[in-house]
Nucleic acid binder design. Structure first.
Lengths: 157, 157
DNA sequence: CTTAGTGCAAAACCTTTGCAACTCT
DNA sequence: AGAGTTGCAAAGGTTTTGCACTAAG
């Protein structure tokens, strides 16, 4: 078990250091938005989600700032910009480079997103590189279906 | 080698039969839009792409009709609605149920989309079903990177 | 005939941009 | 002090909707 404090110490400080290093300013808005992701670790927040969260305590923060901050954090590799097919971008903390990728199981009924770790795909990447000459940078796997709960409650699937 | 005529006979007639069966009308607009996908088999068309294609010979067809038809065809399982992260939906013919899935290699430089067939993922699906109790209906794999051409022409990757 | 489908224009929705005011460093 | 950042409002791009009109069955 980890304590939030520890995470904050190691992870957020790292983020802030990265901003400082690249000569971006450490504005309160940016800190607040990063905090929002820590408070919602497991979720995949859209820009509007973030805006609603930070608005509760900081109604002065504008939506455009949220968008600009998310773009910046994605560019720095801190957040990962993804798309679950609802035609809006969602963001989550980018897994460390040396970590295994995690993927997403998306329930077609309740829209819950379950994370799933697996490294079966590493061998697929090697295959692609060899067979097609494609230099793989990243991959995303989305699996659609019905989660345990919904599967049990639905008759018609 | 196949002839286009044969495909049309077997595939389009099947689509039109499905529409008739579900009591949807076989309007000229719908036929024209289906034809546009046959003329662009290998591509992943957005609604606007389709609109531009059909407008050449049929400028009277409205954009809203294109959207409505694409929605309908996706709902019937004839087209597959996908999203390559450019925040617009793209469509392609839905692979037959018993076919292997194909996946997409997306070049981060020239945005070309290369299709890739593989069934490594079948075993992953079984794993998910067992480990998490998730009933898998479909999956999508997107691989981002640089295609052979761009890899050779770029210094800085 | 009757109801689904169409075309147009307007609205809705998410995201980006221009600009004056502001604030981190 | 000065460059980067913000908030607001307006604009941009994609998709959806309302409505009168048309056409397939």
């Amino acid at each position: 078990m980890w304590k939030l404090g520890d995470l904050w110490m190691s992870y957020v400080k790292e983020i802030l250091a990265l901003l400082r290093e690249k000569e971006y300013k450490l504005t309160p808005q940016r800190k607040i938005i990063i905090q929002a992701f820590f408070d919602n670790m497991e979720k995949h927040l859209s820009a509007e989600d973030v805006f609603n969260i930070v608005s509760q305590d900081h109604p002065e923060i504008g939506l455009a700032t949220v968008y600009r901050t998310l773009d910046l954090l994605a560019e720095l590799g801190i957040l990962k910009k993804m798309n679950f097919g609802d035609n809006k971008f969602r963001y989550e903390f980018c897994p460390e480079k040396d970590n295994h990728h995690h993927h997403h199981l998306i329930c077609l009924n309740c829209n819950k997103v379950i994370e799933f770790e697996d490294d079966l795909l590493e061998s697929l990447e090697a295959l692609i590189a060899k067979r097609i000459g494609f230099h793989v940078v990243d991959h995303q796997l989305k699996v659609f279906g019905f989660c345990k709960n919904c599967k049990e409650n639905l008759q018609d699937i």
